[in-house]
Nucleic acid binder design. Sequence first.
DNA 1: AAGCGCAACAACCGCCGCTTC
DNA 2: AGAAGCGGCGGTTGTTGCGCT
Length: 279
Amino acid sequence: MGCKMCEKPKVNHRKGLWSPEEDQRLRDYILAHGHGCWSSVPVKAGLQRNGKSCRLRWINYLRPGLKRSAFTHEEEAMIMKLHAIMGNKWSRIAMHLPGRTDNEVKNHWNTHVKKKAIKIDGSASHDTMAKSLGSDDQSLRMEQFLDENNSQILLSETSASLESFSPIPCQSILNVTNHAQSQRTPQPPLPKVLFEDWLPMFSDNGGVNRRQESTSNSEALSPQLLQLDMISTDDFLHGFEAISNSGGLIQPQYGPVDLVSSNETYAGFESTHHMFVDL
DNA sequence: AAGCGCAACAACCGCCGCTTC
DNA sequence: AGAAGCGGCGGTTGTTGCGCT
């Protein structure tokens, strides 16, 4: 069953493009309270949308940390390579591209990269690879292998431009609180919106969503590329203005995390674990 | 200036697996 | 054990903007 919080009257849900006011409402609400149960979000935020729509809007557009800039050549190359291995597993591909969403990657693929991929090597991308790999299981293993090796293979094969960014093991970059470990011992729940959702970008066990975690440990994507060096400070901070704008305070239930200054915020991320607040 | 076609992006839909009761 | 609800994913459709005629 769903959560009890989700009991709601039947609403005629609005569809179509989001207005700035709706964005603001959703952003304000989630920054203040976290999303919790998505289906209750629109009710509580005073939106005539369904929960899915809110979730999608947040994930694809409003969530802090998203890059809104054009895809770089490096990112395109990465997409092509990963697509050759994984196929249309957009969410997994997106995990390797900090600040990018699956929808963004998917759209970009369909409009830009697909053509290039076809041009470059005909069907050498997914179709051929998929056949040679034989099964999802094998491609999964390949993916794991790549992850375990920090995708060095991918990168070494890629164009010279790619050589400019070498994936640094995330531990060395981030000294992140080991979320996987912390999950083993009872911990206060993370403020979902600000932190848990970002874990794919920062956490040690990479972009493992709950489903993946629950299905198979072997699926766990170990330290993702986490090429934070690819993210300019500006990109990285994109969206944090929202936090600043909304007063910069996470509501009491999540502890007094002052995010007023984006510099502080970023500094906070550099030392990361400040974000995981024990109450 | 208007109409058309195309590309790019945003959002919806349907399905699936998981969790909870 | 089974039903119901949720979150997440991938495919598809809708909308918008821009360039060309």
